[in-house]
Amino acid sequence: MNARWGPDEDEQTAEAGDRLLTVRAAEGDEEAFEMLVHRHSRAVLQLAERFMGSRAEAEDAVQDAFVSAWRSLPEYRGEAAFGTWLHRIVTNRCLTLLRARRPAADLDAVTEPVAPEHQSSPARAAESHAAVRDLAHAMGALSAEQRVCWVLREIEGQPYETIAQAVGIRPEAARARVFRARRMLTEAMAAWR
């Protein structure tokens, strides 16, 4: 029944389609929700993997986020596009998981670099390869908030106002978190250079 919402639609059509699917999902139409999960899972998995540093943890976080989105849909009023709303739920879920993972570890305490599997090969051939691994290691020392704000800023390229909203802090605080993360990461990477 949903053949008309193909993968080639433009952004506007996609949003209009999302609106319709969201209304239906809010009324308990799980097929409509499944379409939404299909449409958005790739983007949020990628985001969550950047937050968490591992595919498995990202999948857990995304799964939890979707289920909690399903539960909250009846209260969702459509102020933000579904994608934006989901993005926030995923961000918050990852924040919670990151907070639980490490109580403010400092750099020396990090024993396990959280590099994705394909980056943890022992080969030190390329310098860029080593840099990617160093970065993954250094990121392990960031606090949950620093890490999330930094990913949203540096990788996702979001404005501080958006980051602040997603994380639930003031824009100045988001700016400060990003700065602290940058300072810690540049220092760590300079040390290994």
Partner: peptide, 19 residues
């Protein structure tokens, strides 16, 4: 990224709490 597996797991959970 294997989205199919994630979609399946999400929908399994969702179907346990239908509205």
């Amino acid at each position: 990224i294997d989205t199919a597996a994630v979609v399946r797991r999400v929908m399994d959970a969702v179907r346990l709490e239908l509205r």
